[in-house]
């Protein structure tokens, strides 16, 4: 029992990372209706720009800011492609576009960051946050979780209460109608991409030191982020937040069972699937078509 609790708490560190990334993915999907396979790759670009600068001897703060700008810009570029070239395309085509861009970005990223050779990611908020069940929860993990919570609350309030929020919702649900109503579609969409790029970059800067510090692995963090978003059907920020932490905890728990062996990696997937199949038991038809 004790060791189970310990394993679960040990999973929190990953859970915080998945939660904030999951919330970022839902943010992009809710507001510009794109499932963004490149999300974490874009954040990784920003994080690696920061590392290159710190390795070149620049102080941390300007390096972080430059990285942030780089990640945001990269995100805006991908956003530009999906919103301008693919404004009329359906979800499947947009997903295919970001998947293709991901293949491209990983190849470029691995080349420019030196493949598997690790980078010395600086700890932005180093140190031990608190100790629970014999496990140190790092400040970075706590900050990730806190950021995810703040983001969830802030975005929910923003969407519900502000005029821009309303416009954004209109944009994602009926882009054509929104355009006809005079909503500034492109600037808003690019703004969403910029915001999600910046958030993902910050998240990756926090997460990277405790993950495999190579471009490929960091880019593929998009998979657990999607899994977290899936818990809320890509609609609910809170569910994505909870889902992310849940996945981390399940991963932690699964690590304690050697007998699960290679099937360990399938456990979070199965849990999510079960949750979804149950929560969607009433769903009968596709959207109003």
């Amino acid at each position: 029992m004790d060791s189970l609790l310990t394993s679960a708490v040990a999973g929190l560190s990953a859970g915080g990372a998945y939660a904030i990334l999951g919330v970022c993915v839902v943010f992009t999907f809710r507001l510009v209706a794109v499932v963004n396979f490149t999300a974490t790759a874009l954040g990784a670009i920003g994080a690696f720009v920061m590392v290159f600068l710190t390795e070149a001897g620049y102080p941390l703060v300007p390096a972080v800011l430059t990285g942030l700008v780089a990640g945001t810009l990269a995100s805006v570029v991908v956003g530009f492609v999906t919103t301008i070239w693919f404004s009329g395309a359906n979800q499947t085509v947009k997903a295919a576009v970001t998947a293709a861009i991901l293949v491209c970005l990983i190849a470029l990223g691995l080349r420019f960051t030196g493949g598997q050779h690790p980078r010395a990611f600086p700890d932005l908020v180093g140190g031990a946050g608190l100790r629970l069940a014999g496990v140190t929860i790092t400040t970075a993990s706590l900050v990730s979780i806190a950021l995810a919570v703040i983001l969830t609350v802030a975005v929910e309030q923003f969407l519900a209460r502000t005029r821009t929020g309303l416009q954004l919702r209109a944009l994602s649900e009926r882009p054509m109608a929104a355009e006809l109503l005079g909503v500034p579609v492109r600037p808003l969409a690019l703004g969403v991409w910029a915001a999600s790029g910046a958030m993902t970059t910050i998240a990756l800067m926090l997460i990277a030191p405790l993950r495999s510090p190579d471009f490929g692995s960091l880019s593929l963090l998009v998979v657990p982020a999607f899994a977290a978003a899936l818990v809320g059907m890509f609609q609910s920020f809170r569910a994505a937040l909870a889902g992310g932490i849940l996945i981390g905890v399940i991963e932690g728990l699964a690590s304690g069972f050697v007998e699960l062996a290679q099937y360990r990696s399938a456990v979070p997937f199965l849990v999510i699937l079960t949750v979804l199949m149950w929560s969607q038991r009433g769903a009968r038809w596709d959207e109003a078509r």
């Binding site: 999907f29 499932v35 997903a95 059907m233 890509f234 969607q280 596709d286």
Partner: peptide, 8 residues
């Protein structure tokens, strides 16, 4: 599940 949820 449909669309993107199924994809994931």
């Amino acid at each position: 599940l449909r669309g993107i949820n199924l994809a994931i």
